[in-house]
């Protein structure tokens, strides 16, 4: 599969992942704002291993989706549409997303 196709399908998959996790994240956010016990509850959820796993994947999904989104906006503006720049930016987006996620994950853990 060409790198542009990989960056594109990951853009879609990361978006779908964020879509599926949104209700749960909103629930945590709203609970944390409501009361002291809700805040403690949200913190306890975030400390559990499977929510930790969820937000680690979410960090990558958000970073990839953001970078791929910026690439998409530039393509809309006719910037980087030729084959070699499109390949280069797709590679940059995919690689940078992994790199930045690793840095962020090391920083939050």
């Amino acid at each position: 599969m060409p790198i542009t196709a990989i960056a594109s399908i990951l853009h879609r998959l990361s978006g779908a992942f964020i879509f599926f996790t949104t209700p749960f994240l909103l629930y945590l956010f709203i609970a944390s704002l409501k009361s002291n016990s809700g805040f403690a509850l949200a913190n306890a959820w975030l400390d559990s291993w499977w929510v930790t796993l969820l937000y680690l994947i979410l960090i990558w999904a958000a970073v990839h989706h953001l970078l791929a989104g910026i690439r998409c906006l530039l393509l809309d503006l006719d910037i980087g549409v030729d084959c070699s720049s499109a390949n280069l930016s797709a590679m940059l987006v995919t690689g940078l997303a992994v790199g930045l996620s690793v840095i962020t994950i090391v920083w939050v853990l």
Binding site: T22, P23, L26, I30, L33, K34
Partner: peptide, 17 residues
């Protein structure tokens, strides 16, 4: 329907604080 309900729910929750 789900997105609309989530929007209303979030609005009510944030408005209350």
């Amino acid at each position: 329907t789900m997105q609309l309900m989530l929007a209303i729910w979030s609005f009510m929750a944030l408005y209350s604080v």
